[in-house]
Amino acid sequence: MLKNSFRQYGWLSIAIHWLSAAVVIGMFAAGWWMVELSYYSPWYKDAPHYHKSVGILLMCLTVVRIIWKVSQETPKPLGKAWEILAARATHALLYILIITLFVSGYLISTADNRGIDVFNWFSVAPVGKLFTNQEDLSGIVHEYFAYTLIALASLHGLAALKHHFINNDNTLVRMLTFKKHKEKK
């Protein structure tokens, strides 16, 4: 099943979800590690290059994801009213955080009118300097939003586990399989 239904996610949504999750965690780890590299590390040039390349591709994937999300149904959230509200707020915040990370990362690297080379495959054009100290302010935003995204994504994961093990509902299972499932409760 490609598309989402009222009851469950289609395989495209599931694939994008887990691919994004893996990439976001990888990007966070890479970003954390690469800013501490010494100048003579063999990774000093390559790690930021891969980080930026993957970031641009993840941004493209996220654009597809959002278009896909709004183009069809979202499975009905399970749980109490406050849980549904909290889940919706968390999901919205996760999107806001990741989009801000794309924008701030882009603004760091393009503040001097340099483009971003994506795996030496294509280049993303710069828009140039939009405000003073652009690379520094964007860097601060990028750093703190990354921490916040990881914290909120952890909360999101814990909430899924709570639904699975404590509430015993389908919340996690339907993000893992796209066969028809009977409601447990």
């Binding site: 930021p48 760091i108 690297s109 393009t110 503040a111 001097d112 340099r114 100290n133 652009q134 690379e135 520094d136 860097g139």
Partner: peptide
């Protein structure tokens, strides 16, 4: 010191 300019934003950020 924050007006440092080496014609490369990423490096300037690092040097600041």
């Amino acid at each position: 010191t924050d007006s440092l300019d080496s014609n490369h934003a990423e490096r300037d950020k690092h040097l600041r």
